[in-house]
């Protein structure tokens, strides 16, 4: 697959040395909280009880991380998050690709009207529907299920909008040629058009995955059983019990541990993510 590399033109006049220094200073602010978190996570809770300035002194320890391996529910939460975010993303990709193709390249009655209505959906914030959704899912017995956590995301209009834009940008003669061969619409979509939209799929997939991974309010009220907690909710549930619970060091270690998967995925796909994000913008 062709991967459009974003090249940053070296001769751009916009970047200059003082600006770069400014960015360097900001990057310190960016990193300091994380460094502090890591520092806390490698101190024993006993040391931290005496004062957190002990972070700047020896001894350091991995005991908090060992405790996670022994007892924490982080693994279960992680798995839930992966399942929910993956399912959510796949669903959105399938639905948005189909709908985007339909809206962009086919004609059917009320196409325009329906598209405008769907666009209107872009403006509906989660808050306006969440209470009714919660009641609806109660009746359908969908709370505390993976499906119940994924489904609301399927209705997002953002993906449809994005895919419609991408399908529109594909030159018309490509599918016209295929049509002469008497290929069916679905075949054209599947064999010819879809492969062309892979970069767009990546953009949408990454956005959707990150959105689902970070979702807070819906899992907060839908996943109310501990074994169904997503990472976000699990960490929240231990974080607010601060003093009564395992202590600062353990909490910090849990946070570091819980953010590792996202950071690792990010580091691996970094180049692609950058391209995807930028690609989404160039419209």
């Amino acid at each position: 697959m062709r991967e459009p590399e974003v090249t940053y033109k070296p001769e751009s006049l916009t970047a200059s040395r003082p600006l770069l220094w400014g960015a360097a200073v900001l990057s310190l602010i960016m990193m300091a909280p994380v460094a502090w978190l890591v520092g806390l996570s490698i101190k024993s809770n006993q040391d931290l009880m005496m004062g957190t300035d002990s972070v700047f002194r020896f001894p350091y320890t991995l005991v908090n991380y060992l405790n996670i391996l022994h007892s924490s529910q982080v693994f279960g939460w992680l798995l839930n998050s992966v399942i929910v975010a993956t399912g959510h993303t796949l669903g959105v990709l399938v639905l948005s690709s189909l709908a985007g193709y339909g809206f962009a390249r086919l004609e059917f009655p009320f196409r325009r009207t329906v598209f405008v209505i769907v666009l209107f959906g872009l403006a509906v914030p989660e808050q306006a529907v969440i209470i009714a959704r919660h009641q609806m899912f109660s009746w359908l017995n969908l709370h505390n299920t993976y499906l119940g956590l994924m489904l609301p995301g399927f209705s997002s209009a953002f993906g449809v909008f994005l895919m419609t834009q991408f399908f529109r940008a594909i030159p018309k003669d490509i599918d016209e040629a295929a049509l002469l061969d008497n290929a069916s619409q679905f075949r054209i979509f599947w064999k010819i058009m879809l492969p062309l939209t892979l970069p767009a799929q990546a953009t949408l997939g990454i956005f959707t995955f990150l959105g689902a991974w970070n979702d807070y309010w819906w899992p907060l009220i839908s996943a109310t059983r501990k074994e169904m907690y997503t990472l976000t909710i699990g960490i929240a549930s231990s974080q607010t019990n601060f003093a009564q619970s395992e202590g600062l060091g353990f909490l910090a270690a849990q946070a570091v541990f819980a953010s590792l998967p996202a950071i690792i995925v990010y580091l691996i796909f970094q180049r692609h993510i950058v391209t995807a994000v930028s690609g989404g913008a160039v419209k």
Binding site: L98, A99, G102, F108, V118, V129, A132, R133, S155, Q185
Partner: peptide
């Protein structure tokens, strides 16, 4: 214009109506 072309948007439309418009 063909009704059958609408099948492409139908799956999404169902979710849209049930999970967004209706709520």
């Amino acid at each position: 214009s063909q009704w059958s072309h609408g099948l492409f948007i139908l799956p999404y439309l169902c979710f849209f109506l049930v999970l967004l418009v209706f709520p």
